[in-house]
C-alpha cells in the first residue's frame, strides 16, 4: 500500500489528517486540529502525573478524532480489544485489505522514538500502513520519515498499562461522504471551542490559566526549591514537548484560523489569527522565563509574580479573542 507520510506537530490531529488525506480528502493538520476542537486549557492540581499536577493544553485524547470525522462527514470505525492476539489479527486483516489503520499506543515502548521522550504516556497516535513479516510499516505523525516497528514492541505499546491505557484501540476510515463545504463546520467548531474556553468552571479555559497563575505565584512559599523547579518543568513540558508547535498549540490554532479566513472568505478570521499568534508568543515568553528558574539562571527582573503576570497576559489576550470568536 502506498501511504503518503507527512510529519505534523501533534500526533492526533496529524494521524486523522493523514488518514483522511489518504482516503481522498486533502486536509491540513491545522484544519484537522481546529475542526477537531483541539484547543483547550485545563489545570488539575489534584490529578498527578509522577507526583506533578496535570496541565492540559489540548482536548482529551480521542476527542479530536471524533469531532473531525463528524465535521467532514466521514465514518470512523473504532475497536478496542481484551486479547492481544485478536488485536494484532484484526490489524493484519485491515492491512491485507490495504486500509491504513490508526493506533493508540504507549510511547514508552516504541523503539524508534528518541529515548528522551520515552515516558509512560499512553495517548500517542500512529498509523500502520503495511507489514513485512514481523515488521510493521509505521507512519508516525511526529517522526520526520516513515519507520518500522517489530510486532512484539507494537503489541506492548498497544497494550500499555496505566492512565489512558489504549486497550489495543485501533481505528480506520470506513466511509467518506464529503460535506459540500467545510466553512459551516469550521464556524461551528470555532464557536464551540471559544465557548468551552470561556466557560465558568475555574479549572478550565481562561479561568484555568488565571488559576494556574495564582497557584504558581505561591509555589516558592509552599514547597522546597527542587520541587518548585520540577513543577515549573512540568508546565513547560506539557506546553512544549513533542512538537506541540510551541505556545501550547496556540500557533497550530492560529494557523487554523488563518486557513479558515480563506475557507469562509472572512477577513476577520485572518485578523484573529494574528491575535492567537500574539498569545502563543506570550506563552513562549512564559516558558523561557520558567526555564531560567529551572536552570538557576534568572535575570534581575525575573520573579514569580512576573511569571504569573505573563500567564495573566495570556489569559487576557485569549479571553478577548474568544469573545470575538464567539460573536463571529
Amino acid at each position: 500500500m502506498n501511504f503518503n507520510h507527512r510529519q505534523t506537530a501533534h500526533c492526533e490531529s496529524g494521524a486523522i489528517a493523514n488518514l483522511l488525506t489518504h482516503h481522498g480528502l486533502e486536509l491540513s493538520e491545522p484544519l484537522a486540529f481546529g475542526l477537531g476542537q483541539g484547543l483547550f486549557f485545563g489545570y488539575f492540581p489534584f490529578i498527578r502525573l509522577n507526583h506533578l499536577p496535570l496541565i492540559a493544553y489540548r482536548e482529551m485524547a480521542g476527542a479530536i478524532l471524533k469531532a473531525v470525522v463528524r465535521a467532514v462527514g466521514a465514518r470512523l470505525e473504532v475497536q478496542k480489544f481484551r486479547d492481544p492476539d485478536q488485536a494484532m489479527a484484526a490489524l493484519d486483516r485491515l492491512l491485507e485489505r490495504e486500509i491504513p489503520v490508526g493506533l493508540q499506543a504507549g510511547i514508552y515502548w516504541l523503539p524508534y522514538i528518541p529515548r528522551a521522550f520515552r515516558f509512560h504516556f499512553n495517548a500517542h497516535n500512529l498509523i500502520v500502513y503495511g507489514r513485512r513479516g514481523d515488521e510493521y510499516l509505521i507512519s508516525d505523525p511526529v517522526m520526520p520519515w516513515p519507520t518500522t516497528c517489530a510486532r512484539a514492541d507494537l503489541l506492548r505499546a498497544r497494550f500499555a498499562q496505566g492512565a489512558l491505557a489504549p486497550e489495543g484501540k485501533m481505528y480506520h476510515i470506513s466511509a467518506l461522504e464529503q460535506v459540500p463545504s467545510l466553512a459551516p463546520p469550521a464556524r461551528t467548531a470555532i464557536k464551540k471551542t471559544a465557548a468551552r474556553l470561556l466557560n465558568p468552571v475555574p479549572l478550565f479555559g481562561v479561568k484555568g490559566i488565571r488559576f494556574l497563575a495564582k497557584r504558581l505565584q505561591k509555589w516558592p512559599k509552599k514547597m522546597p526549591p527542587e520541587q518548585v523547579k520540577l513543577h515549573l518543568s512540568q508546565v513547560i513540558r506539557m506546553q512544549e514537548e513533542i512538537g506541540t508547535g510551541g505556545g501550547g498549540f496556540r500557533f497550530l490554532y492560529a494557523a487554523f484560523l488563518q486557513e479558515c479566513g480563506g475557507l469562509c472568505a472572512d477577513p476577520r478570521l485572518t485578523e484573529y489569527s494574528l491575535k492567537m499568534t500574539a498569545a502563543g508568543d506570550r506563552w513562549r515568553d512564559f516558558a523561557t522565563m520558567a526555564a531560567r528558574f529551572c536552570k538557576d539562571r534568572t535575570r534581575e527582573d525575573d520573579s514569580f509574580p512576573r511569571m504569573a503576570d505573563t500567564l495573566r497576559d495570556c489569559a487576557a489576550m485569549e479571553e478577548q479573542l474568544f469573545r470575538e470568536l464567539l460573536a463571529l
Binding site: I236, G243, G245, A254, L274, A287
Partner: peptide, 25 residues
C-alpha cells in the same frame, strides 16, 4: 514540526531540532 509565519504573515509547518527551555525541563 512547529508552525510559524513567513514575511507575508502566512503560516506553514517548519522543522525544528528543539528548543532550549524544553531541553532544560
Amino acid at each position: 514540526i512547529r508552525y510559524a509565519v513567513d514575511e507575508s504573515g502566512l503560516y506553514s509547518p517548519v522543522g525544528s531540532t528543539g528548543w532550549e527551555p524544553v531541553n532544560i525541563a
